[in-house]
Amino acid sequence: MHVPDGFLDAPTSIATGAAAVACVGTALAGARRELDDKTAPMAGLVAAFIFATQMINFPVASGTSGHLLGGALAAVLVGPFTAVLCMSVVFLVQSLLFADGGITALGTNIMLMGVTTVVVGWLVFRGLQAVLPKRLTLVPFCAGAAALVSVPAAATLFVVLYEIGGTADIPLHSLATAMIGVHVLIGIGEAVITFLAVASIIAVRPDLVYGARRVLARRELEVRTSTGAAT
């Protein structure tokens, strides 16, 4: 979903750029609470993993492909503030080094695929966690559902931005139908990859998954006798 230069007019690009700067600033402050000596290396690895996964376009319909956006995945693995930083680094490198996503559209791309997917993904994830039983096995399912919703949400924001500052005159209805339709399909792929990635890490080191901390905290309250048996 990398927006190139020229799709959106200058005022809109400047506005999304300013919004992105504000969001990254907020994320820098918030990430301090999420990151410690143990979790900081995870942030680098998650960003590298998302960069790699974004190179893998999978077919979704005839003549159309999609790739993981990764905002929901990053939010569940390292926390939402750190996730915004990870995603922003990925888009910065993609734009400057790989000519993927316009330089004037960097703010737009951070807002669409970084901030929107992280915020929507995290809200859905936490919402599901609040209503579902606190079980570790449910964490990957909540993450997958969050990922599923996050992709059409980003597509919707693109449609809104295009209505405000698109450089071509495209009927809102046809743009919205096409964008959201195809991104629901891509969202399914996003959900599968997110589920597999979160489930893999939970299987070996659940304590490294930010979104599993509350579930683990409850589990650790178990009282054990000196023989190690739970009472």
Partner: peptide, 10 residues
Amino acid sequence: ASSEPDGLNR
């Protein structure tokens, strides 16, 4: 990986 255009490009 698929070389078809992604959702937005399509």
